[in-house]
Design a protein around this nucleic acid. Structure first.
Lengths: 118, 118
DNA sequence: AATTATACCTAGTGATTCAAGGTATATGTC
DNA sequence: GACATATACCTTGAATCACTAGGTATAATT
């Protein structure tokens, strides 16, 4: 058996990344996030509430977000805002994503430089 | 309940995409593919054999690939080559991936055009 | 009065990746 | 000859995570 060194579930974590990105600009509530993602990506990214709410809860559990309840128009909303830990997490995820996207793009466009020389 | 219309597991299928890409240029065998992915992406994408072999089998089951056994240096290898169906599948996956990557990149770089007017 | 939109939630399923094994032969090293 | 490493195939089981499909409740619209 050779050494393994793979990446832990390298394709996941994008909803988390995008949510953290949105919350960097302003506090938002779950329902709002669901629609923001849909609208701002032309429905290319259309994650439902079943994805967003659990991610929000898990991020809050990890202290990457905090929340406060707020009544607007007689409706109870839970606004989430990002913490310093959340910012760090965003930076990590963001870098990981970028590396991945670049690597895939290079593969697809066929960038040839086998680097057998190092 | 509102209409849902999400995308089925929108983050997956990248190993499949990359394998199809590699096989577009030349026939390859599983072990070779594992290392090619690692080498050509500087280990950013390091999927193990436990990912590659099942994907190859499933693609062959779907007639996207066909295979032939070949003995080289007394070693038995199974070479895979892409079929017309595989080319179509690649085109689909490739487009899906590109759309996704563009959407995410726009979100991350903060392209503002809320398109509340349509 | 009934439907739609807002706003929260979770349980269960399914797809897929990852870790960790297993088999067998060839090659290189001590 | 003995041993480790590299090549080359494979699968099982756990974990992750997104998706489906529900559920509750209030406000606004028809």
């Amino acid at each position: 058996m050779t050494a393994r060194e793979t990446n832990p579930n390298f394709m996941n974590g994008v909803p988390e990344l995008l949510i953290l990105k949105l919350l960097q600009k302003e506090e938002m509530y779950g329902y709002e996030i669901v629609q923001a993602l849909r609208n701002r990506t032309d429905a290319v990214i259309a994650v439902g509430e079943g994805v967003v709410y659990p991610v929000l809860h898990s991020l809050e559990r990890d202290k990457a977000l905090k929340s406060r309840r707020k009544i607007v128009n007689g409706r109870s909303r839970i606004y989430y805002m990002i913490t310093p830990a959340g910012l760090r997490r965003f930076a990590d995820l963001s870098e990981t994503w970028t590396n991945l996207a670049v690597a895939i793009q290079q593969m697809l466009t066929g960038a040839q430089y086998d680097k057998a020389f190092s």
